[in-house]
Amino acid sequence: MAVPKAEELVATPYRHGTKEKAEAFFLEGMTAAMRGLAAQAHNAFPVTIYYAFKQSESEEEGGTASTGWETFLDSVIRAGFGISGTLPMRTELENRMRGTASNALASSIVLACRPRPADAPTATRREFLAALKAELPAALRHLQKGNIAPVDLAQAAIGPGMAVFTRYARVLDAEGKPLTVREALSLINATLDEVLAEQEGDFDADSRWALAWFDQYGFTEGEFGVAETLSKAKNTSVAGLAEAGILEARRGKVRLKPPAELPAEWDPAADPRLTAWEMVHHLIRALESGGEAAAAALVAKLRAKAEVARELAYRLYVIAERKKRAADALSYNALVQSWSEITRLSRDSAPAARDLFAAAEG
């Protein structure tokens, strides 16, 4: 016996005539369902909602948008919930038969929600942006300290961003119109990009030059003149960058050295011009050639400096992912994902390393 289809809560245009009617049906039905949840929610406990969505559904100006995800968030907010967290979970394999060359489910998200107070205030777009810029940097640092994978960082950062958006009953633009969920997500993502860019101030001049060059050229060649001009803006020089071991310059061309070309015998303690860029890529070289134990041996030598390398790996992942350099993005993501184990191994090996050093001294 066939399952009844008319009431099934899916946005399928062929059942409703048009895409717009299908989305309206989904939004209305999901809002009613969420209102039922909100009515039963207790203020002492969060409500967690597990939602699986497609990776991308449509190309919009400024990037790809997931209409289903935005519509779902809209229904949750309309129902009277405030969203305090979005926790990404990679539950679907892209290489499974259904997922190959299709737009099947790619990710799942757990939303942490609480009923929004009845007396929630109204805010202007400017007030919302000011709150975002004040609160998102601390939230981002908290996520990074928790060692969340770079591939999940943007989605996880939506949580604290939406927490700001949904603390208000409405956010009004300059014309007095309420901001849509899509507009709020756009502002959250833009603020996230700004915060990540501001973290570049923690890096040395050589690494800031390498970041700008990597953004434009990756590990491919570029003109020497362009590299020299950029070096003046970053308060360094191409000759100094070559001396630091970051790049190769010859015959009027400049190229960043990929991890596989870096020397295996590198010792950070003996490097007179140590840079965050070198640390990240030597760690990737060690991880890819010798596993977590080899990377841990380097972290033990770097000590506290290693945290700057992890911070840079987040920034490099964002650039590689935006530029669609999948292999590079995979390397930066793998380094951060392995960080907890690498640091654990480095701590475990530190006493043994000190004993060996003391024996050699004696």
Rank of each mutant, 00 (worst) to 15 (best):
S231L: 04
P117A: 06
L111Q: 04
E127Q: 14
I77Y: 06
V226L: 11
A334H: 10
L312I: 00
E223A: 14
P117S: 05
T31F: 03
K305H: 08
A350W: 08
S289K: 07
L312C: 00
R182Q: 14
E223P: 11
D267K: 03
N235Y: 12
E127R: 10
M162Y: 06
Y51F: 13
G29C: 06
L230S: 12
L302Y: 05
M279Y: 00
R285A: 14
V299D: 01
T91N: 10
G80M: 04
P160D: 05
A2K: 11
L27F: 07
A52V: 13
K253A: 10
G225I: 13
G225W: 12
G63W: 00
A134R: 12
A104V: 04
K232R: 14
V318L: 12
A24F: 03
R322V: 03
Y314F: 08
N235I: 09
K133A: 11
Q216K: 14
L172E: 14
D152E: 13
L247P: 05
P160Q: 01
A359H: 12
Q216W: 01
S58T: 12
A313C: 00
T166L: 00
P263G: 00
Y317S: 01
E221K: 13
R141V: 06
M34K: 02
A24G: 01
K253D: 03
E198H: 09
G362F: 11
T71I: 14
P178M: 04
A327D: 13
A360H: 13
P351M: 04
G176D: 04
D119K: 09
A190T: 11
S107N: 15
